[in-house]
Write a protein that binds this DNA or RNA. Structure first.
Lengths: 243, 243
DNA sequence: CGCTAGGTTGAGGTACGTCAAGCTAAGTGG
DNA sequence: CCACTTAGCTTGACGTACCTCAACCTAGCG
């Protein structure tokens, strides 16, 4: 629409495989519609049936599941470059909501057009669906973290993951990144109470591997942090390979 | 190869959308290779780079993640009809292992052929990748269960989910299904200790909603069980829709 | 200056995990 | 056919990691 160029998406995909000029042009040619959201805004409601896919351009978003007992669980974090709603394209009905964890800019493109370029450029289509598979891989690791890791390692793991994913799109500067997420939201990410989340973050700070105050996270000792969290970035597929 | 017809896959896909004759033929035409596995066998090792996708034909399988602290977390259950290793096709390197929860028969087809039919029949390709998106949706719900549900509801949810998924491929008879999984494996599925898993299963039995002895699970009161688990099958996409 | 959202701390209870033992049923070798 | 083993299930005792409740503190904002 407004000649939008999805740079972050290019970074995200090109980190995994080469994009041809035609493929880039195809992505650019979608009739993108840009929209902004405030902190906490609902971007895609649960049970809705989106007709557009959305790409996170700026900010931070999350997938959120509201349970009958009133609890909330966040099941994914999304960073710029993430094609957040390919799931909706394939699944039709949203089984969860997508919300802004921080002020966000999103770019929307009609499902019909995404389907068209995926069919016309099968390799590009595979790359787009690869992002869905990466989301799934991330979620598998979250399951492992929730089931079999203690809170300290779990939160350390979260920091490692967000660090890597933000790094792909150039949002890590001097081993530091912006993480405008409240401790209450972190609690809903890791499935702990707010109080225990707070204490665990303090414990993580005390470990000396990171500084985490306000929205700023600084990783002083990547290797130590990764060792603590048993973090192996293989699942993020940060390798350029023909796909 | 041996004129194999992936009936369970047809059921799985046709439950979600119509398959044309050409699409069915395309799936049949893959050079399937059949293999059997015993209980507990490793089907796809962690860190391997499969060149074939595999389809579960008979039995029960799981995705397994081994942690450095020696713990194991199972991150997914697979039932007949599940195209287990499309993830491998898109991701190249396995970030987890696939193992047999029970004696299994698997059908393997070369990635190159799967890629070819996905490109040649874009609608079929979307359906195949839809199964990846459904896996992701299932995992999101597992995350919610692990983070924000008590063990009783979590295990009840597991029963609901397996029930629905087995039903799609005709493996539920008279509200009962075969579930040849040890309590130790259930523990690794839900992220609890064996002892607590045992006590929770007893509690579930005592609730009267299910009989669960040996490998046999009988659901006496589906509505009650679903209410207990706050189970809403939307995420399984059990609706026929053009995709 | 007061209000609010977010962060922090303390106290007390409980739902989990761990350890250890005993039980049952199926399989194995004599 | 019976000892013996083994895998899986069950139970009890005990400790602790986590949750809940309730304050209080701080910074930002009207």
């Amino acid at each position: 629409m407004e000649n939008f160029i999805p740079e972050a998406l290019f970074s995200m995909l090109e980190r995994r495989d080469e994009l041809s000029v035609a493929e880039r042009k195809a992505l650019e040619s979608l009739s993108w519609r840009l929209r902004s959201y405030g902190d906490g805004d609902e971007i895609i409601p649960e049970r809705s049936e989106p007709t557009e896919s959305c790409l996170l351009v700026e900010g931070l978003a999350a997938r959120s599941r509201q349970l009958a007992n009133g609890n909330r669980q966040l099941t994914a974090v999304h960073v710029p470059g993430d094609f957040v709603d390919l799931h909706g394209l394939l699944l039709k009905v949203m089984d969860h909501a997508v919300m802004a964890l921080a002020p966000c800019r999103m770019a929307f493109a009609p499902h019909s057009e995404v389907r068209r370029i995926a069919a016309e450029f099968p390799h590009l289509g595979r790359l787009l669906f690869m992002t869905v598979a990466i989301d799934a891989a991330i979620q598998r690791n979250w399951i492992a973290c929730m089931g079999r890791m203690d809170p300290l390692r779990h939160i350390a793991y979260l920091v490692c993951e967000v660090y890597c994913r933000l790094d792909v799109v150039g949002q890590v500067k001097d081993r530091a990144f912006d993480f405008p997420v409240t401790q209450s939201e972190v609690a809903d990410l890791v499935g702990l109470s707010i109080v225990h989340t707070n204490r665990t973050i303090q414990e993580l700070r005390a470990s000396g591997h990171v500084t985490w105050q306000g929205n700023q996270v600084i990783v002083h000792d990547w290797d130590g942090l990764a060792r603590l969290a048993d973090f192996d970035p293989t699942y993020l597929n940060l390798v350029r390979r023909p796909r």
